[in-house]
Design a protein around this nucleic acid. Sequence first.
DNA 1: ATTGACATAGTACACTTGTTCTGATAATTT
DNA 2: AAATTATCAGAACAAGTGTACTATGTCAAT
Lengths: 214, 214
Amino acid sequence: MKRPLSKRQQTILNYIKDFMGNNSYPPTVRDIQTGCEISSTSVVDYNLQILQREGYLQRRREVSRGIELLGESAASTLRNLISVPVVGNIAAGEPLPLANTEQWNDTDFDSVDLPPFLTKGKENVFALRVKGESMVDALVGDGDLVLLESIDQPQNGDMVAAWLKDREEATLKHFFLEGDKVKLVPANSYMQPITVAAANVSVRGRVVGVVRTM
Amino acid sequence: MKRPLSKRQQTILNYIKDFMGNNSYPPTVRDIQTGCEISSTSVVDYNLQILQREGYLQRRREVSRGIELLGESAASTLRNLISVPVVGNIAAGEPLPLANTEQWNDTDFDSVDLPPFLTKGKENVFALRVKGESMVDALVGDGDLVLLESIDQPQNGDMVAAWLKDREEATLKHFFLEGDKVKLVPANSYMQPITVAAANVSVRGRVVGVVRTM
DNA sequence: ATTGACATAGTACACTTGTTCTGATAATTT
DNA sequence: AAATTATCAGAACAAGTGTACTATGTCAAT
């Protein structure tokens, strides 16, 4: 099976994706070296060998720029796709990760490439992977990918990813501000809404989509 | 306007298209030389300059394989998104529409363009739009798009779109064949499975994904 | 026949680029 | 702590590769 990639390998892979998205030809070893601020070409070569062994790409030996992305990575060579960083997980028991815009261009994150209709044309979209069954009342299951738009202030009716401080619970619910309280309404209308103090709610993003593969 | 290309220039242009269709990286001057049976690299360079001047391609000087096709030529380098027809609706009260492969290329259907990872690389994928709240137990809500792979016979464990003839009910559940009966297990583990006669179940496709936008 | 634009050939050079080598450092296991 | 593995550093080599240069050939207009 595929072992997890080291941070450097992830960085290199994302750099290749990004490069091929912009340039129509693959990067050289030295492009990767300077782009990822690696001190030696041999380090690039070493990690490319691993990426090849793990099936992320294929190299044509003795051919310059002979890198071919495989599997899901190949999608990044497609035009008209928005690359969305998967910045972390969302689960009931752990806090929502911050999504700093500054980090989005970083190469530290895994990413998925989505067609524009899924991101509503928004630029500032990121994704969280759902862990566990705690959000079934939002029609979101284990392994689903939740697409979030980074926003300052949610509008009433928006479905948001909210962190309930006192319960230490992450949740996906429709947001309604009512005075100094917030009513959170599940997407599943068979479930009951809850009302909590506004100060107790930390909204990290507006849900623009959900993607599930099986 | 664009002057007509000489035969050699046409040959070179076609060779580049073909090369990029197969290789994911552009050809070198010498690739073109041997591929088009040209005696000298300078001839290739000469004609590439003309192709660039005429707007058929762009060259990044001093960069190996720095050829980028422009205009219509560029289309050949794009790996297209998978166009998935939305062949109808899926709702509790109405039968599932047939999905004839022959119809998929028709223009009668709306369609969505999806990245390959959502269709698992399958060719025979179609989509149904969910109407109503009848499939919340499958974590699928009103308006969701269900991606289905057309299959002959579901495997045990597959999530399938099934039509229960006697109940006149469409449902999305995990499929388990047990003798002459079929057990249908909801994705939402809080719900109970149901068991019905195999003859009463009509499976129209295997669910490969769910897409929700809001 | 002469001209001149266009096209092709052959060759050589300088830079690019994949690869390899030796050694060092860090992380992990024994 | 010692051993093993994984990763990184620096340098050098050889092949790949874009480009420049000169010479030659083609062909239509003069």
